[in-house]
Amino acid sequence: MTAATPFSRADGVRELHVDGAITLFHEPTQTALVLNETASDVWRLLDGRRTIADIVDELARRYAADAATIRSGVHAALRQLAEHHVIDGAPHG
């Protein structure tokens, strides 16, 4: 898995919204999580085609923020999502 590998949402994940926050439920492990703002942004951009680099570029543009800062947040969000098995693949770095 590299920065050029697209991430996708895992099968068996249900999604609900509560006042703008996203909550996910992973059916196979029966676990729920509530995404923070960064993880919510990343989750919305996971379409099976975008790579980590694409996601970082998109969020850096959207927030007019430093790419290194955004990259760190995206990696942390992807790690959180991977730990809960709601995405396919685990990020490096």
């Binding site: 509560v18 006042d19 703008g20 926050a21 909550t23 729920a32 509530v34 995404l35």
Partner: peptide, 11 residues
């Protein structure tokens, strides 16, 4: 408190 934080707390 945001609804997201309330949800986290309840879960």
């Amino acid at each position: 408190m945001s609804a997201g934080d309330a949800l986290t707390l309840l879960l």
